[in-house]
Write a protein that binds this DNA or RNA. Sequence first.
DNA 1: TATAAGATCTCCT
DNA 2: GGAGATCTTATAT
Length: 177
Amino acid sequence: MLWLGGPADEVAPRLLGMVLTTRVDGLVTSVEITETEGYLPDDPASHTFRGPTPRNAPMFGAPGGVYVYRSYGIHWCVNVVTGPVGSGEAVLIRGGEPTEGRATMMRRRGRADHLTDGPGKLCQALGIDGSFDGTRLGELLEISGVPGTRTWVATPRVGISVAVEHPLRFVASQDAG
DNA sequence: TATAAGATCTCCT
DNA sequence: GGAGATCTTATAT
């Protein structure tokens, strides 16, 4: 997991194609990561831009940490901490493709389509909630596979109102069109 | 203590 | 394709 120690904009594309696995209530669910988004310390859109707070503390921890926050008071979004300790870099897992435990995802989502098509959906499908915040990879959340096996394309980010022009959003281009 | 803003998803048309 | 739902965090007084 030493490859997680790099800058978020370098680690983000490497996560594409890897498998994200969670174990909640004895149910195992896995998705292949197809969309990520990097957040750097200098990024006005990042939660760490204004400095450390009790809430974003996990983002300033060691690489391999998990940072979960609530979006719009309704949904959960999961990040993987990258960069050296104290840098405040992380990669947002925006989307993926179900590979294992899809029946469980369908039950959690209540839908058969769009199971992991967005940050909030992905967290709901995998059962990720606030209890994941502050944990480390290998505990509740696990990433397996070989980093950097997929070709990717950098695209402008969406869902934010600042620094939109920075191409820190990475989408797998080999499997997904 | 009060107010404003936010890395989204779902339903309705 | 468009608007609403809903809670937490940070900043100012």
